[in-house]
């Protein structure tokens, strides 16, 4: 009487099995870090090393929270400028109930206003529709959506639209709101900080405390960053010790 004993896979095969499983999971979760060919925007060497995509992934939705409208918008404008540089020839959409973008100030963060289109959407439903249409279009590098947070279904739709179009979607929200579950790939919280070389009569370059609250497939983190306007790069000298304490 011989019972068929399920033979364990040979030790040699274990690595292959794991790779196969990983590939299957990656196929199921299309936004996972293993997805091949997902280009990423460079932010700064430290941030890029921390993010699982080696930068901020394109074809995705990102949430930016901030209680101070200036600093969070500054970070968003920087991401838009980077997306513009990575996808030349594409345009930017700025969707808001009252789009009051001021390009002379945005140009300081490297954003080229020649390809900026402002969309006035007083109603939230229209704004979401416009953002989805924009993200789905192959002519758009980044869509910035200011206003109330979309619900989970709407955010998921935006994420899918971004995967179709290849640009990035940025949801800029008031940080005082409760940050519920989101379909975005990353969620950031930006707070203003004094610049390094600031004096009583000199503000210095824009400086932020960047907190990565959530990244799909990555760990949270926090950094002090400063925008070097002369060199056009983001400098993140030190990660903050309190990284990840604050939950999204």
């Amino acid at each position: 009487m011989t019972e068929p004993v399920p033979s364990p896979p040979p030790a040699m095969d274990r690595a292959g099995l794991l790779a196969g499983l990983r590939a299957r999971i990656a196929r199921l979760d299309r936004s996972g870090p293993d997805m091949q060919g997902r280009a990423a925007l460079p932010l700064s060497p430290e941030l890029d090393a921390h993010l699982p995509w080696g930068g901020l992934p394109l074809a995705g939705l990102h949430e930016i929270l901030g209680e101070d409208p200036g600093s969070s918008l500054g970070f968003a404008a920087l991401l838009m400028a980077r997306a513009q540089a990575a996808l030349p020839g594409r345009s930017l959409l700025w969707i808001a109930p009252e789009p009051d973008a001021y390009p002379p100030g945005l140009a300081g963060l490297g954003l080229d206003a020649a390809r900026l289109i402002l969309v006035r959407a007083p109603r939230a439903a229209d704004a979401l529709w416009a953002a989805e249409e924009g993200l789905r279009s192959p002519a758009i590098a980044a869509v910035l959506l200011l206003g109330p947070a979309p619900d989970l279904t709407a955010a998921r739709r935006l994420q899918l639209a971004a995967e179709t179009g290849g640009g990035i979607g940025l949801l800029l929200r008031d940080g005082a709101e409760e940050a519920g579950p989101g379909a975005a790939l990353t969620r950031w919280r930006i707070a203003p900080r004094p610049a390094q070389e600031a004096t009583a009569h000199h503000l210095g370059d824009p400086a932020w405390e960047i907190r990565l609250l959530r990244a799909r497939g990555g760990r949270p983190g926090a950094w002090l960053a400063e925008w070097d306007a002369a060199q056009g790069r983001l400098v993140t000298p030190a990660p903050l010790a309190a990284a990840g304490r604050r939950r999204a």
Partner: peptide
């Protein structure tokens, strides 16, 4: 229509209407 570039200036990112 065509857009036009802006020169950077010490100005805000949003100008409140």
């Amino acid at each position: 229509g065509p857009g036009a570039p802006f020169a950077p200036a010490p100005r805000p990112l949003r100008l409140l209407r």
